[in-house]
C-alpha cells in the first residue's frame, strides 16, 4: 500500500510517501502564501523522487495549518496527532514528544499505545519557536546550522534578560556592538530558547523517554541545554529528518485507517 502525508506548515511544507510502512521518498520546500500551491509543489517533488505518479498513491492525509486547503487529500488530522504518531515511529520508545516548528512549540505526552494522552502548545508568543532562532541567526549573520554549534564552543554564554524576539534582537545587536564573541552570543540565544521550552515541557509532566522533533531539534545547542535543564536525555530521530515527523505521522495514519483521521 502506498500512503502519503502532506504537512503544510507556516514556514515549510513537507511531503512523505511510504510504501508498506517504509519511507519511499520525502520532500521539504518553503511554504508559499498559497497552501494549495505549496501542497502540490511538495507532493509533486516527493512523487518525482519516488519515481511514481500522484495516481499511484492509495491514500493521502493532510496536516499542518494549511491542511484544509490541500486539494488531493482524502482526510486531514491535527498536527498534534500526526506529530505524536510520527515521533513514536521515529523514536519507538518515546512517551513525550517536544516538537518545535517554525511558529509553535508543542509538547505531546503519549500513552503506551502511541495515542495522545495530553498536549500543550505555546500560547503566549513566538519566542519558544523556530522563528526566534531564525531571526537571531539572521542578526548574527550565521546559518541556523552554525548557530547550533556555538553552545559547544564556549564556556561563557551570554544571559539574555528577555526572550521576547524583539527585545532579544536588540540585546543581540548591543552585544555585537560591544564586541562579544559570536559563540558567546549564539550560545546565549540557544540557552534562552531552551529555557523557554523547558517551562512548557515541565508543565506537561513529561514521562521518559523524551524525544524531540521539528526543525529546532537539529540545533545541538538547544537540545543539550534542554537536556541539562530537564535532567533527562532527549532522543533525536535517526530514521528520517526530524522536520518530517508530522508528514510521516500523516502517512502512517493514512496507512492505518485507509482514509486517515485520528481513529
Amino acid at each position: 500500500m502506498i500512503s502519503a502525508g502532506c504537512d503544510i506548515g507556516s514556514l515549510t511544507s513537507k511531503g512523505v510517501i511510504m510504501e508498506n510502512g517504509r519511507i519511499k521518498a520525502t520532500a521539504v520546500i518553503a511554504s508559499t502564501n498559497n497552501p494549495e500551491s505549496s501542497a502540490e509543489k511538495v507532493m509533486n517533488l516527493a512523487v518525482e523522487k519516488a519515481g511514481m505518479a500522484m495516481d499511484d498513491i492509495d491514500v493521502c492525509v493532510g496536516t499542518g495549518y494549511g491542511r484544509d486547503r490541500i486539494p488531493f487529500v482524502q482526510d486531514t488530522a491535527s498536527e498534534i496527532v500526526c506529530h505524536g504518531t510520527g515521533a513514536r515511529w521515529l523514536v519507538p520508545g518515546a512517551m513525550t514528544v517536544i516538537d518545535i516548528g517554525g511558529q509553535d512549540c508543542k509538547v505531546i505526552r503519549l500513552d503506551a499505545g502511541g495515542q495522545v494522552e495530553k498536549f500543550i502548545t505555546n500560547d503566549k508568543c513566538a519566542s519558544g519557536t523556530g522563528r526566534f532562532l531564525e531571526v537571531m541567526a539572521r542578526v548574527l549573520g550565521v546559518s541556523l546550522d552554525e548557530l547550533g554549534t556555538f553552545s559547544a564552543g564556549t564556556m561563557s554564554p551570554i544571559t539574555f534578560a528577555s526572550t521576547c524576539t524583539v527585545w532579544a534582537q536588540a540585546d543581540v545587536i548591543r552585544h555585537l556592538n560591544d564586541g562579544h564573541p559570536l559563540e558567546d552570543i549564539g550560545a546565549g540565544i540557544n540557552s534562552a530558547m531552551a529555557n523557554r521550552v523547558s517551562m512548557l515541557v515541565s508543565g506537561s509532566k513529561p514521562k521518559p523517554e523524551i524525544c524531540m522533533t521539528g526543525g529546532v531539534s537539529k540545533n545541538r545547542g538547544v537540545v543539550q541545554t534542554l537536556e541539562k535543564l530537564l535532567g533527562s536525555r532527549i532522543h533525536l530521530p535517526r530514521r528520517a529528518d526530524p522536520q518530517l515527523a508530522g508528514a510521516i505521522g500523516a502517512a502512517l495514519l493514512a496507512q492505518k485507517n485507509g482514509r486517515g483521521g485520528a481513529n
Partner: peptide, 26 residues
C-alpha cells in the same frame, strides 16, 4: 486556552488545539 476577549483572534492555532483535543476523545 488563554485568549483575548471578543472576536476570536489566532483562530488557526486555537482551532488546531480544539481539533487535537477532540481527536483525543474519539
Amino acid at each position: 486556552i488563554e485568549r483575548e476577549y471578543g472576536a476570536l483572534a489566532d483562530t488557526g492555532r486555537l482551532r488546531m488545539r480544539l481539533e487535537a483535543f477532540m481527536e483525543r476523545m474519539t
